[in-house]
Design a protein around this nucleic acid. Structure first.
Lengths: 261, 261
DNA sequence: TAGTGGTCTAGACCACTGG
DNA sequence: CAGTGGTCTAGACCACTAT
């Protein structure tokens, strides 16, 4: 157990004493979700410390993802939003027949409006990560069509999504257009082109965001991201589509249900 | 692009200017992995700032997970360790026949020694998370056997693992003993008891560690954890084992290969 | 305008590491 | 021992938000 004393034998730094006291008030519900913490200047007075010391205490809690500071307003206990649950069945034809993607369904379930924007579509040489998953052409290179998207829940950006398709699949199709005129989107087009999704392969890591990602996803400090590389494999065992998701971890849960062996 | 200027029209805070300069040196390879940064006092002198300002710059990079401070020694560019890859096939009988768990295999592949320790075994009432996954008994309660483990790679703790088994499965068995005398461990015993693992269900989230987890896993600042709830389902569709993994995200990659539909 | 957090200064002393 | 990061002080001014 952490020491809860604050007697003369307390060897914790003052900033940690303050942080621990605040954390206890948060965990006990004394400071509820969304509730405001005492100001840094108040904390400094109460604990007989310099403002920077109180500030360091607040920083400890910020790094733990417990509180969030709003410039000009105060520091607040972070609200835990309901998670957007993405199942491994999210590509199943059942969902496509219903006409609503699992992401949109989850948003609706939470009373939010889900949508996505196409940021850009480019032709480029595949990176190592992409080429490794899609396999190279006979000549050892691989050109891909790259579609950059952002997914929003209401007006909050939640995922950054990059989809990579082999150039040979997109030649002369509307897969290079920002708007695809197909009721089932990209995957509907690909199925018509003879690729039925029979397996998905996903690689998952978690990490702190880059400054760029933090800005684009409007991430508060102390918010990690989930970094998911998805590969679609067709009936012949050929990978034909790779998508990378960079997801706000505090809003995302991944769910897999898969047979053993 | 971020401004790379440092002319008079540079509106970035001084701490960010210093952090950006250091980040650029790291990304360019000028400061290699494992390399030491200039000391805070040196940075303050070079950039004509107070030491606290240089310190704030270092903190920015620490929060991004780019560098790590060692008390009394200096600040160093963080080394990226090879990831321990855990596949969705890690429970397949193929691995059990080989006699080596995927975790141990991965450690060996990296020249490390993998092992785990049993911290405790207790009987308790199931928490909501556990009961929800295992299902309740007829009387609405559920007693479970809880096994607490730590997994190490060499001497570094990598996972905290809690396994929950319904009490009715462990009555009068060695599943309540710290050491299980079975070549295939817990799952071998459970298979003999009539539960063949036919599906696994896993829920994955990522978050910053609690102070307790950070201490137990010796986590550096800026290191998130993966929080995985695993459920084993037998040939009758009955869930019979739940395990929670809290994993160092900087050492872990999860890999799923699963059929669609 | 008052109150909040964000940044910064110029010191000080402590705790830890290595030679 | 010298040098490092860790903590702390007592100020100051800036940037932002609400009233």
């Amino acid at each position: 157990m952490s020491p809860a004393t604050d007697g003369p034998d307390d060897r914790r730094p003052a900033s940690r004493v303050i942080a621990d006291a605040l954390r206890q008030r948060i965990e006990s519900g004394d400071l509820p979700e969304g509730g405001q913490l005492p100001s840094e200047r108040q904390l400094a007075t109460w604990f007989d410390a310099a403002r920077n010391t109180a500030r360091e205490a607040v920083r400890i809690l910020t790094d733990e993802g417990l509180v969030i500071a709003h410039h000009g307003q105060g520091v607040f206990v972070r609200q835990r939003h309901p998670l957007i649950r993405l199942g491994s069945d999210r590509y199943s034809s059942r969902h496509r027949e219903l006409g609503l993607s699992p992401f949109l369904l989850e948003c609706r379930r939470q009373g939010k409006t889900g949508r996505f924007e196409v940021l850009s579509i480019t032709q480029e040489a595949a990176s190592v990560d992409v080429a490794h998953r899609l396999g190279k052409e006979a000549d050892g290179t691989l050109e891909v069509t790259r579609r950059e998207n952002v997914f929003y829940a209401d007006d909050d950006p939640v995922y950054r999504v990059s989809t990579f398709l082999p150039g040979r699949l997109t030649d002369g199709t509307d897969l290079r257009d920002p708007v695809i005129e197909h009721p089932h989107g990209i995957h509907g087009r690909l199925e018509e082109a003879g690729h039925t999704m029979t397996r998905i392969v996903e690689d998952i890591t978690a990490r702190m965001p880059t400054p760029d990602e933090a800005a684009r996803l409007a991430l508060p400090k102390g918010s990690p991201v989930l970094d998911v590389w998805h590969t679609s494999v067709d009936q012949d065992g050929t990978p034909y589509e790779v998508t990378r998701f960079v997801m706000r971890a505090d809003l995302t849960a991944l769910h897999y249900d898969t047979p053993v062996e």
